[in-house]
């Protein structure tokens, strides 16, 4: 039995479309994605997806290459990667630097040791172009979450005033309170813990 010509053409349509799509893909840009070890030497992972296909990259200095619409794993090696991408890697800003300040018990007074770190922070600030200071307050697990959010913010605001007093411009400082979400020492709910009543200073 023969089909009408128009019908045959229609049946062939998906195949023609697929060819057109493939041709379209091959004309696209060539792309490369490479995983690097992070600054502490640990290696994370990335998942690269293209046209419904995905490649997971788990090893440092390996990656994927997309060419002619096809995604393939690629291993150029550390030296080639470092050489090719040196100027980009060097342009990455410095990692933020963190300091911890502790308070005397039931007081908004810094401990002597914490007071002594203020000059170091001012000194380190000079290493950051267009410096920003983020002051993050924390609370222990005593009390309701909303109360701890406020308390942790108040601690951060208190430290901001100290930093302004030490010569850091107000508009370079942001404050935030993390409540009791991020304890330094994990405790049972509702427990007092002096080490968690703290303020973290971040330079970036």
């Amino acid at each position: 039995m023969t089909e009408p010509a128009s019908r045959r053409l229609l049946r062939g349509f998906p195949a023609i479309l697929a060819i057109l799509l493939l041709a379209g893909c091959s004309a696209g840009p060539r792309e490369r994605i490479v995983l690097l070890p992070d600054r502490s030497g640990q290696v994370g992972a990335i998942i690269v997806e293209h046209a419904g296909k995905s490649v997971e990259v788990k090893d440092a200095y390996t990656g994927t290459r997309l060419a002619s619409g096809k995604l393939d794993p690629e291993n150029l090696g550390e030296e080639a990667i470092r050489q090719r991408y040196q100027s980009t890697i060097e342009a990455l800003p410095a990692s933020p630097r963190r300091y911890l300040l502790h308070f005397e018990f039931a007081s908004d007074k810094l401990t002597a040791q914490s007071r002594a770190t203020l000059p170091t922070i001012l000194d380190d600030l000079k290493n950051f172009p267009a410096p920003e200071v983020v002051v993050i307050g924390h609370a222990d697990a005593v009390g309701a979450a909303t109360v701890n959010d406020r308390l942790s913010l108040e601690r951060a605001q208190r430290v901001r005033e100290l930093l302004i007093g030490a010569g850091i411009p107000r508009d370079a400082i942001q404050v935030a309170g993390r409540g009791s979400r991020e304890p330094l020492v994990v405790t049972r709910p509702g427990a007092q813990e002096a080490r968690n009543r703290r303020v973290e200073i971040k330079l970036r």
Binding site: C25, R32, V34, I46, E49, S54
Partner: peptide, 21 residues
């Protein structure tokens, strides 16, 4: 994302290169 791929991040440092003609 790039013009034709998307990248899921499970940490932390990586490079993306897009060559165009």
């Amino acid at each position: 994302s790039t013009p034709t791929t998307t990248i899921g991040i499970r940490g932390t440092e990586f490079i993306v290169e897009v060559e165009s003609d």
